[in-house]
Design a protein around this nucleic acid. Structure first.
Lengths: 336, 336
DNA sequence: ATGAAAGCGCTAACAG
DNA sequence: CTGTTAGCGCTTTCAT
């Protein structure tokens, strides 16, 4: 214990204890070329002896941090949990560590969170930010590899991983139309969430398009709500009280759909509800939420894979699209 | 644009552009004492001009990183979401940034994630790790402020914020006993999750104690399951198939309770279920889960407050306990 | 195979 | 009020 109390061991301490140079320690740390077995042994011994842990911040000033940053807009949405678990899984056997930065509640654009990550020298960023401009992302992507999750914009500077929202929304609408619904409302987020080829924007456009195609342009009803189950519940409850009479609601994602189910249960009217994502709770028999399954874990894993490729040097953009799948459950029935 | 392409602006670039010294720039950055208005102006102008962002890693080598690390064991549990949103809220108007490190699925002890955070020079850590030893935590807390969430151990080295699990579990049991249940099972996590004064350990002990106190020692039935709704569902389903005949299940937390509700729905037997935490979905009318409400957001906010106090220099330990509250809903009824 | 030394971008004395 | 300078702990040529 040649250590001053209150101070953690540094590479210097290890070098001293092992009787070698700092460079040598650094080499065994990164198992770089050119270390004899005997040296490696002594150094390793000294490291465990001193309980040495390399300071990533110091390393950051020269090389990699082996940290991947993931920005998500809301913590509550279980779809992101699926994505994250796929991502973590993909990174499980690597030296990389995941850190998550949730966007603040207020200015939910997420740009601040992404920049906070970049400021902390992550090796790459995965972000879910429908509202950040491509320009801002390109500025960031010029220095740090970026994969955007859920977006469909075609930048050359960053990759994207998204579900096919048009196909998914069409499946949801086809299901409701086949059941015989005509008064189908769409429950979605505020308009500001629709920019930049966002999932919700596409789902909305598809809803409108399919209604028109079915000759139901006159029945189009778009209900806007804030993020979250509870806000969705309140919004739909109020809309129903104020005279809206849909027989079916297509929600932009499952959190909203679950809130909708709450309002429907209270209103005691037979209104079908379709969600999007297939979060774990959707298949619970108490909810039985019909929804569009997106393979969140696969998408998360793929996002990591693309990001690591970029960290490894790839510079041309890849834009990947995953096929969603309708899951029919009890929350949808023919209109009364 | 005196910048080499592909390189981000540094404090040096800003100093050059503004025609001042690096120290001056650093000062306006941290708005330290001793900067004239004119200098501040020129420097600020240069910073925006060059799109300058300080590298936290470099700052980390001298001072604070203004980063708080939060370690959580599982992403899926919505109670942690409540805690996180309380924590983020408490930090909203400060310079601090939150980063979250989820423990890996496999070795879920969380120590690795905590250390990953510390290696990245966070100014303080909030962690939810029932299975990490106090010794390991004390070693970490010697250099980095730590607040443990959910634990009841009485270390001098770190603070704790927890719910009163004994009171909560007693309330749950009293409710079931008052309804007339005698065959009450307890659904909880594997034994390894009970160490170090963990919430689940205390809830289990209280369950056993209350059963004995009610003269029901012979009816004690502890069912162990892995983490997660789905695992809980499968475990209880199998237990019911194999002959277990409880009329009520007290689950160690809501995720497990929701899985239990699934199994109960399938078994088509009138089994009451009580959870713990009161996650947002618990109050959904489709579930109507009776549960013990813990003020997760308040607890998260308090954890931040304590952590910032420690960052600010406090060294004596604070151990805070929050009172839970039973929420009776439709998932509990008298036995048939 | 090993070590010496330069430097990453920032902060914090300290001088002026 | 402003600038000089010495590091923080690590990686990385470049000698040896």
């Amino acid at each position: 214990m040649a250590l001053a109390p209150g101070r953690n061991a540094t590479i210097e301490d290890v070098a001293l204890a092992a009787g070698v140079s700092r460079a040598a320690v650094s080499k065994v740390l990164r198992d770089a070329y050119g270390v004899s077995d005997s040296m490696r042994e002594r150094v390793t011994a000294a490291m465990t002896e001193l309980n040495y842990r390399p300071r990533i911040a110091a390393r950051a000033m020269r090389g990699r941090t082996f940290t991947i940053g993931i920005e998500i807009p809301v913590l509550g949405n279980q779809f992101f949990t699926r994505m994250l678990s796929g991502a973590m899984h993909a990174l499980a056997d690597t030296r990389y560590q995941v850190v998550i930065a949730p966007a603040e509640e207020k200015s939910r654009q997420g740009l601040r969170a992404i920049e906070a990550l970049v400021d902390r020298q992550v090796d790459g960023v995965i972000a879910v930010s429908p509202r950040v401009t491509p320009e801002a992302l390109e500025r960031i992507a010029a220095h740090t590899p970026v994969v955007m999750f859920g977006r469909h914009d075609n930048s050359e500077a960053y990759d994207t991983v998204a579900g096919d929202d048009v196909v998914g929304a069409k499946a949801a609408m086809a299901h409701l139309l086949e059941l015989g619904h005509t008064k189908i409302a769409h429950l979605t987020l505020p308009e500001s969430d629709e920019e930049h080829e966002s999932p919700h924007g596409l789902r909305l456009q598809t809803y409108v398009g399919e209604m028109e195609r079915a000759g139901l342009a006159g029945e189009i009803l778009v209900i806007r709500t804030d993020e979250g189950q509870d806000a969705a519940y309140r919004t739909l409850r109020d809309a129903l009280r104020e005279g809206a009479e849909p027989t079916a609601v297509f929600a932009a994602h499952d959190e909203l759909a679950i809130g909708a189910l709450h309002a429907v249960a209270e209103a005691d009217r037979p209104i079908s509800v379709v969600g999007y994502d297939d979060v774990p709770i959707a298949s619970h028999p108490a909810l039985g939420l019909t929804t569009v399954d997106q393979p969140g874990d696969e998408m998360g894993a793929r996002a990591i894979q693309l990001l690591l490729e970029r960290v490894g040097g790839r510079t041309d953009a890849v834009h990947e699209v995953f096929e969603p799948q309708l899951r029919v459950r009890t929350s949808t029935t023919p209109p009364a």
